[in-house]
Amino acid sequence: MFRTAAHTGIDGIGAARYVLGLKPGVKTVAGLNQDYAWGRDSWDIFEKAIRKLKPDVKVLEPLWPKLMQGQFASEISKLQADKPDLIFTSVWGGDFVSLIQQARPRGLFEQSLVVINNDGANVEDFGKQMPDGIALGFRGPHWLDIPDPATTPLQKAFIDGYRARHKKYPMPHGSYHVVQALQGVKAAYEKAMKDKGGAWPTVDDVVKAFAYSKFDTPSGLISMAIGGGHQAVEEAVYGLTKMNAQTGFAGLTQVKVFPVECVNPPDGVKVADWIEKGFPGAKCP
């Protein structure tokens, strides 16, 4: 089993680092996450990270809406009444859309800084209805200009090809991660064949070639650096939404790209342990 995209750890750690850079004086934090493994894990990592990075922060009791319930009116009222400085959420897909649709007219994004840890799939679909000032995070360097298509030929080819076929931009992170998987397998087979002098490799040969490999993708060079060489690491990207009149949908401002060593634990170290010990070995700008 190989995973050619980064794991959940970088979403929560990246979110905590980004919001504290943006709002160092943050005092109260609330959470709104879907009540299943992804929501629980996302909140757990973010809460641990922000408590470690800013021990005096007050964390309010988190909200746990059902997955894809789509109705957030009561949760928004609670958040408006509590008035936290910061709201962390890991909602995605339909819930991401519903939450923004319902919170926008109620002024939640003006009241608190809302950070969404890992979804940009519907940003283009939202068009001009996407509010400014949401901190949006992506698992990996995937955005219209990250990495810069002018200097990354694969990124340019991917965006152009995707737009020609689907009439829209490839939004993070699903489309990029599928390509990463294909590129990773392709690179592993090529390496395994090369090692065998051009003969078709066995599965074991490919597994051996895949572990700790590096391969080129539209997101730049991906490294299978942790999890015994079976788990990729990526940079975490965060930025604030800002309407872009040119494209007709929200772009990002105050973008921060956190290097791999800043948000990923070293090989063999669990995320929770890394945070608990104070991120030993982390290299952040």
Partner: peptide, 21 residues
């Protein structure tokens, strides 16, 4: 997803009990 957010905010908001509806 099909997104048509306009009618939700078009009628304006009311401020009640410290919350915007």
């Amino acid at each position: 997803p099909i997104i048509v957010a306009e009618p939700y905010g078009l009628l304006g908001q009311l401020r009640l009990a410290g919350v915007t509806y």
